[in-house]
């Protein structure tokens, strides 16, 4: 029953040969087999959102997918965000706005925001709040996370010229 399944996992454009049980969640395999521990596990029942990653462009809970299901998919995690020492704009916006304290939920929020804004680059304030309500943070009270998203949206709409809801 606990037979291992060998397959290739593509994470942050790198291929990882893994051999895991079918029941192992994508979160656990990314952390333990790929050694990418930036994806944090907070509840394992899909509510807290700390393990949010991007699979084929969509933000998903890595605790609610089995790793075998990610075969052939493009997985993106927090480790793929910064370019060396240079933070991604979403990461920088968090730092600029003190959008993180203990930092445990932060990778999940960053991946959620990154994917959601790739899908909808110019959200309204209401859409931002609705999107952020998917993940839990116990430290910040969300206000500074909201401000970070606003900064990021402002920066990226400036550069792309996209203005939808101004």
């Amino acid at each position: 029953m606990s037979d291992k399944i060998p397959f290739t996992l593509n994470v942050n454009s790198r291929e990882y040969q893994v051999s895991v049980e079918a029941r192992q969640t994508l979160a656990d395999v990314i952390r333990e087999e790929c050694g990418l521990t930036g994806t944090r596990v907070g509840c394992e029942h899909g509510v807290c959102g700390s393990c949010t990653i991007i699979v084929d462009g969509a933000p998903v809970r890595a605790c609610l997918m089995f790793a075998v299901q990610a075969e052939g998919k493009e997985v993106r995690t927090i480790e793929g965000m910064a370019d060396g020492e240079e933070l991604h704009s979403v990461q920088r916006a968090f730092s600029d706005n003190h959008g993180l304290q203990c930092g445990f939920c932060t990778p999940g929020f960053i991946m959620l925001i990154t994917a959601a804004l790739e899908q909808n680059p110019a959200p309204t304030d209401e859409e931002i709040r609705e999107m952020l309500s998917a993940n839990l943070c116990r430290c910040t009270g969300y206000q500074n996370i909201f401000n970070a998203v606003k900064q990021y949206v402002g920066e990226s709409t400036e550069t792309t010229g996209a203005h939808k809801n101004d």
């Binding site: 959102g49 809970r61 959601a116």
Partner: peptide
């Protein structure tokens, strides 16, 4: 539910 849940 929420945005990421609705993706799957």
């Amino acid at each position: 539910a929420h945005y990421p849940i609705r993706q799957r």
